[in-house]
Design a protein around this nucleic acid. Structure first.
Lengths: 251, 251
DNA sequence: TAGTGGTCTAGACCACTCG
DNA sequence: GAGTGGTCTAGACCACTAG
């Protein structure tokens, strides 16, 4: 058994993840220009004393995240910075904007218990009238208002959300994860434009009828149980970003 | 060598893809309920006379598309229909709406050659003033107007787009692929709400200032060369859908 | 023709879940 | 403890690209 000189920072991290992190760092350090070729998978395997299959896992991991791309028969290449920086992930508003170097904030408008309407019940796969915890907030970035979030949590025994706990956690998802072990794994989102109604206008301090970006989200737990329905309305200053890849399509 | 009863419809399709298609069909036929467990990977491997690794590739393929999900130590399960039907893919407007059973259409407003502004040049990684082919269209679904698309193609030798060819192909991406071998592989998108300006208002027959969903897209070829910048403005009736997964995030 | 990524195999061990 | 998915290996062959 050849002694591996590979020293994973986190001993629990699988080898292909360590390798992927190492490769990503090499790229982000600027040692490889955009669209330049990485060493071949066989060379990387030898250099890091791992099997080629492990290299392929690392390569695939980075490819899914838009960091590199492979061409059969040609090689593997560094994705242009514009693509590399982009990756759409399920994340709380707080982490999402935090990752851009901005400071997220919130003003809690209301927390109340309600009953699910037919529309929301249908989306969440629960019975109409099922208890929901509704959390309405104004979101801010660097102190400036950017939009409203109206979350409807599926009430489950033991789940309780109050102002103090939410303020302390700063993020609803963080509170759910750390306080109740509820971890979002997947979500579907639906976006469209819509005019501000009187409530929106009052809260966001814009005129009634002015344009808002409306995003509806249904979030699922790791076991694909519906967690929440969230209706978000953002001012025009807010940007929603996505990376779309051909591989997501079936051919 | 045990005789495999597996008969791939397309002989060029890799085994894991055939297997994935077979599994997907089993699910879509309704033989497996939402959140019910699939057979274990080892059982599937034996049943289909392939190695477990091939099964894992098929499982992963479907997992990425939101069709199934795996839990370590528990098993692999059918994703709920709501998630299953959702997958965001890079596609032409035509295929995108066609996949929903609607009939896409277009009215070509203008096709002209322009010079890249600094803003667009920066996004596309080309020099300001570089030639662009601008294609402005009104998009329709089932005959009803849904929005505007203003595409700016990076001009390359031999590339020519005219009304007749575009009308015939029906889709710009189809024309690019079949006519010029230019195949989009990846794109980044940026969405926000904005009020209609006078041009938008006139073309879309709405009032000036009424809300539109604005989507900016930069598309890249398989070799990550910028292909186009496209500015899209949609009426509130248009829905943009996305599936967001935790796996896209780095932890 | 040489080198690349893409697929496939057979086997091993680990981490996790659950009865 | 039995069964599951997750990782890893070593080797093989294929499909494709390029000089």
């Amino acid at each position: 058994m050849p002694p591996s000189r590979h020293k994973p920072e986190d001993p629990t991290l699988p080898r292909y993840r360590s390798l992927a992190d190492a490769l990503r760092q090499t790229i982000e350090r600027g040692e490889l220009a955009d669209n330049s070729a990485l060493p071949s998978e066989r060379d990387i395997a030898e250099a890091h004393a791992v099997s080629r299959d492990t290299v392929r896992k690392a390569v695939r991991y980075l490819e899914e995240r838009g960091v590199i791309y492979s061409d059969q028969g040609r090689g593997t290449f560094v994705a242009p910075a514009l693509v590399r920086r982009m990756s759409r992930f399920l994340d709380s508003f707080s982490q999402d904007t935090g990752a851009r170097g901005d400071v997220p904030g919130q003003q809690i408008v209301a927390i109340e218990t309600t009953a699910a309407s037919m529309a929301i019940a249908g989306l969440l796969g629960i019975a109409p009238g099922h208890a929901l915890i509704r959390i309405k907030r104004i979101r801010t970035v660097n102190g400036a208002m950017v939009g409203l979030q109206d979350a409807h949590l599926v009430a489950v025994p033991g789940l309780a959300v109050d102002r103090a706990a939410l303020d302390k956690a700063g993020s609803l998802y963080k509170l759910l994860a750390e306080g109740f072990g509820i971890v979002p794994a997947e979500a579907i989102e639906n976006l469209c434009a819509a005019p501000a109604d009187s409530d929106d206008a009052a809260l966001l301090k814009v005129e009634r009828g002015s344009p808002l970006l409306v995003c509806e989200r249904v979030t699922f737990s790791e076991r694909r149980q519906p967690i929440e329905y969230c209706l978000m309305k953002y001012l025009p200053s807010y940007r929603y970003s996505a990376r779309v890849s051909k591989h997501s399509f079936q051919n």
